[in-house]
Design a protein around this nucleic acid. Structure first.
Lengths: 347, 347
DNA sequence: CTTTCTTCCTGTAACGTTACAGATTTCCAT
DNA sequence: ATGGAAATCTGTAACGTTACAGGAAGAAAG
């Protein structure tokens, strides 16, 4: 017994947007058939599929996200969780653009979920879990023992981190090899006979703090250099503070003759301190710094630089979450980019 | 006749997340009542409302976005449309964080929709309209006659632009007063007896190009200065190019003695060119530049600076779209921030 | 004791989609 | 012929929410 529409007009009620029903009406098929035809199911004839696709194309059909989400639970959302206190020189832009670039060719959408560090960093993650508001998550500011990673793993929500952890959980990540960076930076300074070196390091809570420091120390060991400690200052400190403590250090009896900077912003302040102390980069001291974009060359070309491609990081992270969502095992989704630009996939 | 649930268990079927049905079951009320209680409708008793709210709170109820969106069409999404070719020094981060800050206290979500300039800038806008995927839109890179503004206005989707238009359409915007910036920049240079000035201007297609240029010319008129043109270069040109053309200009017979820079990145390249020409900022030439963060002071303190608070721009834009969504007329949602930091609401 | 409000609550249907459990037809092997 | 499989299509129900159109009970007014 057919209930073929008399009351059922076939068009969408109020919105004016075409729906499956519209196509069903136009083709004379059932809504289910149209739905299955559009997703290329095996039990629909080729001819029908093509007819449906044609009509859908013609009338500009776009599946209604809310309908899909309600029915299937799939959100088509990737959530980028950002610390509001992130850096100052545009890391964020680059990572956002990198992610976007990958998502553009999918039908995923990027939502940015920032949080302020005063609050619990778990909050945004918990919210996403509680409201099932994303299919995947990208985390930055990763810590060695990161509760967000634990929670997401437990609750089985696909995610990828910018930076590694060290908690026995295998998960997708992308990281810059800060250890090699630290080691090679020391090497370059040693090559210019600088052996009393100061490291401007990331805040200790982050994993890459340990990496960079380990590389730095390894480098020192290799060249027989010595660390000159910079107290109570890291690359997230206000630039004024970095400037002040560095200047004080340079004017003390055990002044360093080389700097390894963990961020380009800190390099600005250090360079200013060097000059305020009446010294000159390349003559009295040498500096190496990371940078997300090739900006330091315009600032002080004497500073030796290494480019960290954040745009690439964004792309890798996005690809990793998407792959994880598609069921690729986490162990295949770990990549590290080297200071020389090489990209290494972990096995 | 009551159909009170025997088969209806009251809990959510599969997901495990509490729904209105869960609360209805627990309180013994109807689903409709619970829905209306939670939105504080007038026809629900205070006592019931409180009971419902308590239970909802206790079990951690979050309304299902997809359900609401499907039923009401409301997405709770603000879409930020960004040109991928945006600037280099972190404008994007600041605007994103500014918007986020405002949205954080609402239940709106920020989705970032980038587009590459090769493609049609209308594409993302059209997509949002076609799929009704946002309640409001924020545009950047605004042009005097902006087709996106026209389309959004036509289709009646709330939006706000970063930058003004000039097409007889009243719409919400936030803008920096680049005219005053240009004028005062010239004034500061004239104060140091610089009268042969070069403007590093934004690409001509953007509205603020006209503003900045108008201010620049007005300033020149006021102090009797003269423009020295820099050909085929704007602040979006590669820094290498800015450097090269500026250097060439400085070495020509009609070299300028002052620069007004429309962006901090361009200031880097100009400063480098000045020095490559064997000149010194503050001695042979003077420079004024805008900056989104106080970074140039670390670079060349001799450069005179004006801070453009992009974070504020983000906040203003977010507030404007939200207000527009709430029905506030566009003419009340126009603000301009002045170089001295003052924020002016247009009437 | 009606009648008419007012207050508070309720079931039904619908938004657009897909999982599921059939139907119908055709075709082939027996 | 007959049974069965294969191919193709279909309606119903459900996801969670809200608009709508009531309905029951008590209070106030006649």
């Amino acid at each position: 017994m057919k209930t073929t529409g008399i009351a059922t007009t076939g068009g969408p009620a109020q919105s004016g947007r075409p729906t499956l029903k519209t196509i069903a009406f136009m083709t004379g098929l059932g809504v289910t058939t149209v739905s299955r035809a559009l997703k290329d199911a095996h039990d629909i004839s080729i001819e029908t599929k093509e007819r449906v696709r044609l009509v859908a194309e013609q009338i500009g059909y776009h599946p209604n996200r809310a309908g899909i989400r309600l029915r299937t639970g799939k959100t088509n959302v990737i959530s980028l969780i950002l610390s509001l206190e992130e850096e100052i020189m545009g890391l964020t832009s680059h990572i956002v653009f990198g992610i976007s670039e990958v998502l553009a060719s999918t039908n995923y959408t990027l939502v940015v979920t920032p949080y302020s560090r005063e609050k619990d960093p778990l909050l945004p993650v918990r919210y996403i879990l509680d409201t099932a508001s994303a299919d995947g998550v990208i985390l930055s500011s990763t810590e060695p023992d990161d509760p967000r990673v634990r929670l997401l793993t437990e609750r089985n929500l696909p995610f990828a981190t910018h930076g590694r952890t060290n908690m026995g959980i295998v998960h997708p990540y992308h990281d810059f090899d800060n250890e090699t960076y630290g080691r090679e930076a020391v090497g370059r300074l040693a090559g210019r006979h600088r052996k009393r070196l100061t490291l401007l390091e990331p805040p200790p809570r982050y994993t890459y703090h340990q990496h960079m420091r380990a590389g730095f120390l390894k480098g020192l060991a290799e060249c027989g250099g010595e660390e000159v400690m910079l107290d109570s200052t890291d690359i997230n400190s206000p630039l004024e503070q970095i400037h002040a403590t560095t200047l004080r250090l340079l004017q003390s009896r055990n002044a360093p003759d080389g700097f390894v900077c963990g961020s380009s912003a800190s390099a600005l302040a250090v360079a200013a301190a060097v000059e305020a102390a009446g010294m000159k980069i390349g003559r009295d001291v040498d500096m190496v710094s990371k940078q997300p974009a090739n900006l330091l060359r315009w600032f002080r070309p004497e500073i030796m630089t290494v480019n960290e491609d954040i745009h690439l990081a964004g792309r890798e992270l996005a690809k990793a979450v998407l792959a994880r969502i598609d069921g690729v095992p986490a162990e295949h989704l770990r990549s590290i980019s080297m200071p020389d630009g090489r990209l290494i996939q972990s096995v």
